[in-house]
Design a protein around this nucleic acid. Structure first.
Lengths: 388, 388
DNA sequence: TTGTAGGTTGGTTGCTTAAACAAACTAACG
DNA sequence: CGTTAGTTTGTTTAAGCAACCAACCTACAA
């Protein structure tokens, strides 16, 4: 909403970025195509294009197909992925997951190490090592451009406000990595990154408003409205796990999270089975072996999730819902259950889909976010391809 | 998000609007002040300013106060309110409310007539008459600029999708009035207009994200995110009345609306008292006379509303909440009740305020909306003053 | 007290600059 | 030859700049 004034230089800058956006989102486009798309004069585009080319943002692919009535063939161009690269870490409860990507989001390398029970310092040491490794290996024009951390907690103003699963010991991740590597460092909530992934990769492209439910240890949601991530006043938007399951006089209602997060479910099964070694895999196995009690607990949870979903959809009327959950990925039956429950309540069609490749989604979301940032294109819609 | 390309003309146009925005939002500003605010050169501003002046958008107020160290006095300017005027109607269940406003939102005239039980055609005939009356009376530069209708129902693409209280008989309001008066005609949901009112007048100015609960016959919410009205995929965002009060296995949970809308409350009191003549005023009187059962019902409703509020706040993390309700306006005790309940659940501070002047809020919201529209400034933040 | 010089701010004017634009051109095709 | 892609060269236009005038203030001297 707050429009900024535009002088001559900002005009040029903006148009430069619009051209770059075209090149990123339509790999194998040409100058004329861009000119047509942006309603700017051919010569203007040529000028802008050449500026970008000088800065090594462009990779030319030779000639494309000419039209069927003759005429010169266009020179196809796409983003020069080797302009530079970014690194994204997911600081999980059980492990650290790391990935390095070229500017077009192509994965250069990824690693995962188990850090369960380890303090944050050890996790960050691993991250630091990974960055150094990449700096030694990856060849690119500008080198490392930026780093993103996926945090399972609440982020505000690029600071961790709340980290329920990992004790942070007042560690200032941003300061530390910015200092060491001299690149921008961004922290973002894991559910938000999942949402960004859905927006910028594959499916979500055509949806303006989507909500990504992230159901792991806790329950959160990433909210995309008007193609923009909505973070709320203090970055707490989407903390739907705290929603009440019961509105009414006895306001001491249970929160959704305390009832059907993975954590809660595992605990309930633990109690039920008097077995403290139960973990997610055990729950999955029990469900698959059609254990009656476990099935009941999970189906109950699905019903609650469906209700929560209905309430959120009712307030936001989004185009689609995504769910990012390892548990559901392993037990797709439950997705059907949720969908059916939702249908019963809503009587309305709404695309509900599982996020494919649960863990990578977050990382790629982070890759997209930091890429947007380093290009100075936070408010530009960028699409990326996910390799298969 | 979708950025449009900017050529020379659009640049000029945009800067023109930015200058106009400054003049609207800071009545009694000067060229230098604008130049400073927009970071554009003095001479550039002068040029833009003069263009606007030629188009009669500007009213000069003579000289302002000079600074205490000497120097020429600035020439103060504000929006020429008599550039033109807009008209807004509220098509209520019981009455039609009409208002005409100058471009600065100043009320020229307003009327209200009782139309309870009358068909839509009669209501619109009255509206039509009002417009003609204004066209005869109001003197302004450009005359009537646009018309806005506040609809107690769902609007999508400027069409009525759902009108629970008034039978529309397939009447195409937009077509009809656009045809007759040859100006833009906009329909918008009443709760959304309330939200716009809170955003553009008085209080809400400083909030980026706010939610306005409109509790009348039904329950709806207007959602302002990033200073922008959020309408959802099909304009159904904010239909929170449909939220479930209970998430869980028996998904046939009650909707909030069926439980504590004004309609529902009155019906419950009717049943309880075996008196079919009960209306809002009767409920108010009964509460004031401390009728036990009525108090119970209302307090119960407050508790549900507070829970609903908590859930919505949990998903959106807004800066503030507004409530627009005639019932609450008459019984401010209930607001306290809601606030207390909310506090109990949330344990967090959040500004919760009643909309003053319940009925006018919607109309002024409509005025703001249509004014934005006719100025071609839908995406510009405009502030208006409400006369006292 | 008055008058004038010096400083300050508001706004205009005329010229410069740079980016978009337009049209004519070359290149490369069917 | 017609068509399409891209470049070149020159034009237009809106922003930027610098010098200016206008209108105010204060200080201070006659």
């Amino acid at each position: 909403m707050e429009k900024e004034s535009i002088g001559r230089t900002q005009l040029r800058n903006r148009n430069l970025k619009l051209v770059l956006q075209q090149i990123i989102n339509n790999p194998g486009t040409s100058r004329v195509a861009i000119s047509h798309e942006l309603n700017l004069n051919k010569s203007t585009i040529s000028s802008l294009y050449n500026s970008l080319a000088e800065d090594h943002f462009i990779e030319e692919l030779g000639e494309g197909a000419s039209s069927n009535v003759g005429g010169r063939k266009p020179i196809m161009a796409r983003l020069n992925k080797k302009y530079g690269y970014t690194i994204t870490f997911d600081l999980g409860y059980r492990q650290v997951h790391a990935v390095a990507n070229y500017l077009n989001s192509e994965v250069i390398d990824h690693q995962e190490i188990n850090t369960k029970g380890q303090p944050i310092e050890v996790m960050l040491q691993y991250c630091s090592d990974f960055v150094k490794e990449m700096q030694g290996e990856v060849v690119s024009n500008q080198g490392l451009l930026g780093i993103c951390f996926s945090i399972h907690g609440i982020i505000n103003q690029n600071k961790i406000v709340n980290s329920p699963w990992i004790e942070m010991n007042d560690t200032d991740i941003v300061e530390q990595f910015k200092e060491t590597f001299d690149v921008p460092v961004i922290l973002e909530n894991e559910a938000n990154l999942s949402a960004i992934y859905e927006r910028d990769f594959n499916a979500g492209r055509y949806y303006h408003n989507s909500i990504t439910f992230s159901i792991h240890r806790g329950i959160g949601a990433g909210i995309i409205l008007g193609k923009r991530l909505f973070r709320g006043k203090q970055g707490e938007a989407g903390e739907i796990g705290r929603s009440l399951t019961l509105l009414g006089p006895n306001t001491a209602g249970q929160s959704v999270e305390s009832f059907c997060s993975e954590e809660a479910i595992i605990n309930r099964v633990k109690q039920l089975k008097h077995d403290d070694t139960i973990d997610r895999q055990a729950v999955v196995d029990l469900y698959r072996s059609k254990d009656h009690e476990v099935m009941r607990i999970l189906l109950q949870s699905c019903s609650v999730i469906a209700g929560l979903m209905y309430n959120v959809v009712t307030t936001l009327n989004p185009d689609a819902i995504f769910i990012n959950s390892e548990l559901l990925a392993e037990l797709p039956d439950l997705l059907t259950e949720i969908k059916d429950n939702y249908q019963d309540i809503a009587q309305e069609e709404l695309p509900i889909a599982l996020t494919k490749n649960t863990k990578f989604a977050t990382l790629l979301g982070g890759c997209s976010l930091i890429t947007h940032y380093v290009l100075g294109m936070m408010d530009y819609e960028l699409h990326f391809e996910e390799a298969n």
